[in-house]
Design a protein around this nucleic acid. Structure first.
Length: 537
RNA sequence: GGGUCGAUAGCUCAAUCGGUAGAGCAGUUGCCUUUUAAGCAAUUGGUUGUGGGUUCAAGUCCCACUCGACCCA
């Protein structure tokens, strides 16, 4: 269909896919410039400002009456032909037009009103309206080309002076334009936007064009990442990039993806964590180090899990998990202040608000379990008694699960979902993590915390294990459970001496879910993992 | 992996008990020089996810498959 238009455009020497357009202003920049010009004019002409206020009040009444009439027509109470009176509106006081701007963007609205038209262009900052009349364009252009050749979805450039319409919208009154890139396919429905989740993920660009909420969320994600970097750089952390292809998939308990390298004829694992390489950096003397990178876990998909996700890991020498508490609290406060402009974040789908400004709770793992089970002697009971107790509590547990796994099921199913406000869960049992230092108390708990917010784990942090002998023992205990291979190279690194350090991992996607009140990890990942679908049409 | 629900025009959605597949937006053709989901008039658009079955008759009932959503493991 639209191919015909390509030929017609080319026939008169207009390239439907131009190489450039000189965009001098984005929508936001044009608004800012005009508002400044307008303010300067009002300062010099205070009477006009007063007259304009009178006019705007009248215009508002006029528009309200018009809307009311339209609503009545829609409801069938009156018809288009019924007589009607609209309130009088005084002559609009003259405000000079602003300077000329050149804008560009995708046409997302096109109202032709006879010899004049309104269009809206979507650019990287938002949406700006342009206005054109027949007489502003070269003879014949408006009827033969402007109205005929521009479709919703085309990318156009437009040049003209800025003004404010009678309804108060800042608009560019254009005198020159060009179709910069013709769209061959129609846009999604303009009012409802794109709804089908599958299509949103597969064709995210259409979602971004038609859904402002989605656009805003991904802009926020970008700003969050920018501010995380700034926060860490300001505190003298070095950003590094370590390999994605690992010989041993270590640093976490997760099933890895396996891939094959032809040149060396050997298998590699896609990394499941950043930890072991970043600790090698500590050994190498990079005392403050972080990496923001993708990790891959070959596990299920859910509202909270995508097989590839973005992780921040931070390591700081000469501190411990307590230092990490200050760091993550400071980081989230920084994001609240510099990105969101608020410390209170609503929870998606719930009538609840997370208050980051209030003091953050700190609770020991064991205390939380005792509180949730109502059993002060929980930890001295046998595995069988615990299993029986779980049944009473309505928690499904694998009957083969080890003692600590039964308890951890209680934690994950009964406690974690209730931790909505920021909570540092400390003193986690040593079986759950082989890479942290044991607490001095000798009770088998670790000097670690798990920061839980909105019922999910956001950031685990450790006082990092730097004793190579203890580390080896703890690895060997884990390898038996087939979750991790033993990373001999890492142990050799530790044997060279690693400074005492605090380390932390932050799931960026989950953080973004939290901070943007999204309901699903897939709303925070541009192109979430989906099954291949051959009929991509 | 298990359960529940879903897939109808480019998009958002209808279609009663199994009986001629419709509407709005988008598109096309007109009218309209400050519109705001603009309006008015006309008009195009479909192998109802795929494959099979039951039936005089299937978008609708049955079976299998594909893709997805939600919940569970």
């Amino acid at each position: 269909m639209r191919r015909d238009k390509l030929d017609k455009l080319r026939a008169v020497g207009r390239d439907p896919f131009r190489t450039n357009w000189d965009q001098t202003h984005t929508s936001k920049q044009a608004f800012a410039q005009f508002e400044a010009e307008e303010a300067a004019f009002f300062d010099a002409n205070p009477t006009v400002k007063a007259e304009l206020a009178v006019y705007e009040a009248a215009a508002e009444k006029f528009n309200a009456a018009k809307m009311e009439r339209r609503a009545k027509i829609q409801a069938g109470e009156i018809t288009q032909q019924d007589p009607f009176e609209l309130p009088e509106v005084p002559e609009k006081p003259e405000v000079p037009m602003g300077a000329e701007v050149s804008v560009a963007g995708r046409v997302v609205m096109f109202n032709v009103m006879g010899k004049a038209s309104f269009l809206k262009l979507l650019d990287r900052d938002g949406i700006i309206q342009i206005y054109v009349t027949r007489d502003d364009l070269p003879e014949g252009d408006y009827n033969a080309f402007f109205k005929k050749m521009i479709d919703l979805g085309d990318i156009i450039g437009a040049k003209g002076k800025v003004f404010r319409t009678s309804t108060g919208e800042i608009t560019v009154h254009i005198t020159d334009y060009a179709i910069v890139s013709k769209s061959m396919r129609p846009l999604p429905e303009k009012f409802h936007g794109m709804k089908d989740p599958e299509q949103i993920y597969r064709q995210r660009y259409l979602d971004l064009i038609s859904n402002e909420e989605s656009r805003n969320r991904f802009r926020l994600r970008s700003e969050i990442i920018k501010e995380i970097r700034r926060y860490l750089w300001d505190r003298d952390f070095n950003e590094v990039e370590t390999p994605c292809l690992h010989n041993v998939a270590g640093g976490a308990a997760a099933r890895p993806f396996v891939t094959h390298m032809n040149a060396l004829d050997c298998d590699f694992y896609l990394r499941i964590a950043l930890e072991l390489h970043l600790k090698r950096m500590l050994v190498g003397g990079v005392d403050r180090v972080f990496e923001l990178g993708r990790v891959f876990r070959n596990e299920g998909l859910s509202r909270r899990h995508n097989p590839e996700f973005t992780m921040l890991e931070v390591y700081q020498a000469y501190t411990d998990h307590r230092g990490m508490m200050d760091l993550i609290k400071g980081l989230i406060h920084h994001l609240c202040e510099n990105v969101l402009g608020t410390f209170q974040i609503p929870v998606h789908g719930k009538d609840e608000v997370i208050d980051f400004a209030a003091p953050w709770r700190e609770a020991k793992y064991n205390d939380l379990v005792i509180e949730a089970t109502g059993d002060a002697d929980w930890f001295t009971r046998s595995r069988e008694d615990k299993l029986a107790a779980c049944e009473k509590l309505g928690i499904k547990v694998d009957p083969e699960a080890a003692d600590f796994e039964v308890t951890n099921d209680v934690f994950e199913k009964l406690i974690e979902p209730t931790l909505i406000q920021p909570t540092f869960v400390t003193r986690i049992p040593k079986e759950l993590c082989p890479l942290a230092k044991l607490n001095e108390s000798g009770d088998g708990s670790l000097d670690v915390f798990e920061l839980c917010i909105n019922g999910q784990e956001i950031a685990p942090a450790y006082s990092e294990q730097n004793d190579p002998f203890v580390q080896r023992e703890m690895f060997e205990a884990q390898v038996g459970e087939e979750t991790q291979d033993l990373d001999e190279d890492f142990l050799v690194a530790l044997e060279h001496g690693m400074p005492p350090a605090g380390g932390m991992g932050v799931g960026i996607d989950r953080l973004v879910i939290l901070l943007t009140a999204a309901g699903n990890i897939r709303d925070t990942i541009l192109f979430p993992t989906l099954r291949n679908k051959s009929s991509a049409e």
